[in-house]
Amino acid sequence: MAKAEDFKTNVKPTWCPGCGNFGLWQSYREALAELGLQPHNTAMVFDIGCCGNAANWHKLYAFHSLHGRTIPVAFAIKIANSELTVVADSGDGGGYGEGGNHFLHTCRTNIDITYIVHNNQIYGLTTGQASPTTEIGLQTKTTPQGQLDRPFHPLQVAIAQGATFVARGFTGDPMQLKNIIKEAIKHKGFSLVDILQPCITWNKLNTFTWYKQRVYKLEEQNWDAKDKEKALAKAGEWGDKIPTGIFYQEQAPSYESQLPQLKDKTLVEQGVQAQDISKFLKEFK
């Protein structure tokens, strides 16, 4: 059995001291270990940014992709080898901005991958520009007069697009976060876990305390995660109160489970042999 520590390389994280990512990473590693996963049968696709740099300190099969391009890579890894646990890991910039189109459409596929988005409502590695989830009015390097755009609502978008597992965690509650990640990975289908992860260096508004004062847990409210309409409304709740937990979960066949091509063996296990094409040639004669 792998322990949480087994998912760690010798590389020292380059996050700012006190960054919310440390807690997220701890919860994530514990979740993987408690699910009985091994580094070699876990594949993770990393975005570019502070979260993406973590490819270096995660010990598992990592694909450090380009900005916004985690989910297409993760999607196809799962198709090629459906026995792997596949996780895509992104920030609010790559996940909801640069990779927005992939996010919209991968929700529709119900591919069995988990999408973890480090949401700190700001761009960190590029030193403090507005992100898709930045609050209206926030002054950043690129919005010195205050942000004019309305913030993106990832959970509502995911539910509307057909995602079958939609949750929000908070790095200030590692136990809840770990449980959400475990449920997301166990879920057979596309799982979004949006994680409130304060950026202590660049976002002076949405701080640890700011979140702490606002978050409350859905699981403590007798929440019914099967009700899509209510989930959609709840996912829009943002302000004095911010709900966390599993908003919506639906059991539906995953994308890869519906492919007859994968019925007996994974694509990778099938290997590569020269295929006889004579049966396909007939239509050209």
Binding site: V45, P72, A74, A76, I79
Partner: peptide
């Protein structure tokens, strides 16, 4: 795929996995 960006990244993902 939803666009060509996705198309090539999917191909890369499948190839990385071994197909």
């Amino acid at each position: 795929s939803e666009d060509e960006i996705s198309a090539i990244h999917m191909a890369l993902g499948a190839s990385f996995a071994g197909a």
